[in-house]
Structures are given as structure tokens and as C-alpha cells.
Design a protein around this nucleic acid. Sequence first.
DNA 1: CGTCTATTTGAATGTACTCAAAAGCGGTGG
DNA 2: CCACCGCTTTTGAGTACATTCAAATAGACG
Lengths: 193, 193
Amino acid sequence: MTDIQPLIQHIEKIIPLDEEAQRALSDKATIKKIRRRQYLLQEGDICRHYNFVLNGCLRMYLVDGKGGEHVLQFATENGWIADIGSLHLDQPSRFNIDALEPAEVLRISKEELIGLYVKHPAFDRYFRVLTENAFVGMQHRVLQNISTTAEERYLLFLEKYPHLFNRIPLVQIASFIGVTPEFLSKIRRNLMA
Amino acid sequence: MTDIQPLIQHIEKIIPLDEEAQRALSDKATIKKIRRRQYLLQEGDICRHYNFVLNGCLRMYLVDGKGGEHVLQFATENGWIADIGSLHLDQPSRFNIDALEPAEVLRISKEELIGLYVKHPAFDRYFRVLTENAFVGMQHRVLQNISTTAEERYLLFLEKYPHLFNRIPLVQIASFIGVTPEFLSKIRRNLMA
DNA sequence: CGTCTATTTGAATGTACTCAAAAGCGGTGG
DNA sequence: CCACCGCTTTTGAGTACATTCAAATAGACG
């Protein structure tokens, strides 16, 4: 019996859960501890779980043909992280997920989740809203990428994720907004002046 | 009674619909004809409907502070288009949707859709899968934008949307992949040689 | 044929990248 | 406590990628 209170609280911001639904969720969710640099998902493997972050910090990224890393997502407290595409299509993932800080996550497999959907429509609603929000977030990011300069993207990043500024190495932020670390360093210097 | 067969066929690629569900859908969906350049959604308005394209071609785009247009999405036959963020939060949209070609769309309001969800869980499943797929598509696009050159993005666009190549003006494709039309023209020339 | 819009071209400029090297910054062990 | 190691960040010079602006060309449509 793991302590899933943070997850329940997070869900209840969107939709209330009755006692039975909470118990069902508690039965399905398992806790997993991850060390710094440890993989939660490795390229080529099939993503089998949704992961809810209790504490720590993870990232999901792609490694391109030249060995360059491109960060698609960070996840910290109360964030979800998974390769949705791999999970739902049972296909090998092109992404890696690993820990920038030691972390604890709650894992729920797709099969367990489908079981929850069937018995408790509230989960249905919650995960739809979750996916919709994630989709809207990605839309904004696409727009930023096609319509702004690197400096603007950096400022928008700080605005959107102020808590990550002094928590995530510059090189990771650079990768997230799509510039080289050298150039982001120069952007910072310009902003100082 | 509008002919919603294309929509039903599209849904049934994901999940079968019984007679009653089909009738319910048919009752809720209304057809709308749009002329070239006509708005389906205008910046500042709240997006009230999901739109399924029966024929023609639409685009959703943002106008930035300098008057530049940035295309977020094209939609042709059997595609959906809507500002999900505006729709679900009842907030004014920052986007415009208009027609690049005269089009016919089926519209379903959020309220009607919620009614369908409650009575027919199949719609629930369908729209979850739809949103998940859209999300995965946006993820790919973000990755492309942060990890490839304009030429690569153009080639990937042609690969993914071969039917749009000689259907959508170059200037629109340029806007979609995030380059100026002049530069895309030069990219094309280089690819010829 | 003329008009309107879309596309192409070229020159000059700006934005961001590459590569190499130096500087900073924890940690760890002596 | 200091010295050293590994890793991150900064700097600078040179280069590549992409934009801007202005003008010419090409297509589409009445």
C-alpha cells in the first residue's frame, strides 16, 4: 500500500474520486525509485507505464543521428511522463527517459489503466483532460518554435517554468528550447547587460 | 438529416458504433459550407465546435505582433480542426481558422459531444485516441523544429503530407514549417539541382 | 489582355552554429 | 584544508543557415 495522496490530490483538481476509485487506484499504482542518470525508459524499449512524479526531476529526450540530445519534456513533482505513442501502439520508443535528479515515481501500466477506465469513468475524464492539456501545451511550443527567436523562447521558458531555472542545467534548457548551450550562454550574457 | 457516413467510417476505423450511437451522432452533427478565405473561427472568438472536414481544405494559424501568419495545422478530407484550448476552457482563441479551398465541415458543439460521451462510451474512446494521436503528432513536430534544418523539415513535410504538395500554396507550407517563403523557394531550387 | 497574387532571384544582413580553448564549480581524497 | 578531477559554463573567431527588402517573373482568373 503506497502513499498515493499527491496523485489523488492532483486528480481531484480536475474531478472528484470516490472512496472506491481511490482504493482501486492505490491497488494499481506502484512506486519506483530512480537514481540520478538512471533510465526509466530506454530507446528501443516499449513504454509500458504512465509515470507520475512524486519528487525529483526526469527528462524525455531523443538522440539524433549525430549523437545530439533533444529534450522533449521535463517532469517534476506532480507531473506525468511517458512516451504516449509507444505506450498506446506497443511500438519501440525512439525516446529515452532518465533522471536529472534522484526521483520517485508512481507507475501505472496501460492495462491497469484501461481496467480503471472501465470501472471508474472519472479516470477516463481525467486522462482525457490531461492529454488535451498536454496537446495544447505542445501546440504553444510548436508556435514558439516557428515564430520566435532563441532569446524569446528562453524568456518564455523562464516565464512558464520559473521553478526550473536554477534546478536544471543550462545545457538541458538549451536542448529543450532548441539551441546550442554555447549560444544560450551568450543569450544570458546579453540579458544581463 | 445530413450525410455523415464519412465521419462514421472514420470513427469505425478506431471503434465500432452501434445503430443507436450512429443515430445520436447524426442528430448532433450539422453541416456547414465555407467559401474560400471565409473564417470558421476568428481570433478573439471562443471556439464552440469540433469540425470534421468532409471536403476542401482549412488551416488554423496565429497572427503575431508584426502581422506575420504562422500555420499550426492544415485540415483536409477526414481531418478534424478546432482550437481545443479555447473549446475546453471557454476562452477567446488566439487563432484563426479559415478556408484555403471551399469546404464542407460537420460541426459538433462541446455540449453535444459531452452528451454523446455520457450515452455512448465509444465516443469517449474515439476522442481520447484522436487527441492522443494529435499529441504524438505535435511531439514529432516539436522535435523536428528543434533538431532539423529547414530543408529537412520541408522533406519531412512532403513525406508526411504528399497529397498537400501540389494542393497548398508554397507560402502556406513555408509558414507551417517555420521559414520565409523566399527561403523555401531557394530550398526547392537546391533540391532540383 | 490586364490585373492580382504567388513565386523566384539576388544582395546585404542577422541569427545561430561549430570548434577549440579557457574559466568556474562542486566533490573527493590526501 | 587544499589540490585535483570531472563536468558545466563561458568566450571568441570563423562559418553556415535563414531573413529582409526590393525587384523581376510567372500563373491564375475574369
